[in-house]
């Protein structure tokens, strides 16, 4: 009897999961495919400001610090082997391949993702989405689509910014402070970083993360139970689910992209 109950619970859990995945998939299709219009462009711009520009500060500041720490840690290890010349290479590769896409995506989920969920959730709770439907406007197109596209475009740009300031932060600590030869910092970097292999793959990663994080954020907002408790839960879920998804997908993508490079 007890075992039967558990099996039933397992089955119900699986079905619930599949159902919500299905709903999320249909949701993504319905909202992302729409005819661009002049008005849609304005709505998108607005969200670009909200999602992208407003996240710039936290992303850039974090990037500088990560680059500086990376440089400091790398130097203390490399100097033991007399290989501090390789500092630039180490900083650039760790940032481009791994840290920028992942850390920027995590910060983005915390800063912009949770705000998207809360905003859409609040619009749902105050019946704004329903009233939009009653006016005869599809909220998927009007509310969700611009946010989805803004997130999708913003995160890769933010990731690029993160890498650039991170490399600069590494330069500050490594070259200006610890005294690594400047030419070695840049030339070591240039000889080991491939534009398509490293910069390109890093960008692909961040595109995937952008899609996943924004998708989770807007879907959680759209699908939540419209009470204050529901909103706070959905916001938490956005951050938790997107963080897990980013880290898990990062492993998969890294295996596919850099697995054979050794």
């Amino acid at each position: 009897m007890n075992l039967g109950h558990r099996i039933t619970a397992l089955g119900r859990g699986t079905l619930d999961l599949l159902e919500s995945l299905g709903r999320a998939g249909i949701f993504l299709l319905q909202s992302s495919i729409s005819i661009p219009s002049r008005e849609g462009w304005h709505l998108w711009l607005r969200q670009m400001h909200f999602v992208g520009v407003m996240s710039l500060a936290i992303i850039l500041v974090s990037g500088v610090f990560i680059g500086m720490v990376l440089s400091l840690q790398g130097y203390t290890i490399l100097v033991d082997f007399g290989a501090e010349e390789a500092l630039g290479q180490m900083v650039a590769l760790s940032l481009l391949r791994e840290l920028s896409p992942v850390v920027a995506a995590l910060l983005f989920a915390g800063r912009a993702g949770s705000a998207l969920t809360a905003e859409i959730g609040l619009m749902k709770a105050t019946e704004q989405l329903t009233s939009m439907e009653m006016i005869g406007v599809d909220p998927l197109r009007r509310v969700v689509a611009p946010r989805l596209w803004a997130g999708f475009v913003s995160l890769p740009l933010l990731t690029v910014g993160f890498s650039v300031v991170g490399i600069w932060g590494g330069y500050l600590v490594g070259v200006e402070w610890l005294g690594v030869f400047e030419g070695a910092y840049w030339s070591g970097m240039q000889s080991s970083v491939g534009f398509l292999d490293d910069v390109g793959n890093g960008l692909i990663k961040s595109l995937v993360f952008a899609l996943v994080v924004t998708w989770i954020a807007v879907f959680q907002g759209y699908d939540l139970i419209p009470t204050s408790e529901g909103i706070s839960r959905a916001t938490t879920r956005t951050v938790v689910y997107s963080s897990l998804a980013v880290l898990g997908l990062d492993f998969v993508l890294t295996t596919l992209m850099f697995g054979e490079l050794g």
Partner: peptide, 24 residues
């Protein structure tokens, strides 16, 4: 709009930097 424009421009410039200065 100006802010978003700057943001996009900065992203593209960053990519150019990564291409020229970092990957040589």
């Amino acid at each position: 709009e100006f802010g978003v424009g700057l943001f996009m421009l900065a992203g593209i410039l960053g990519l150019v930097f990564l291409g020229l200065r970092v990957s040589g």
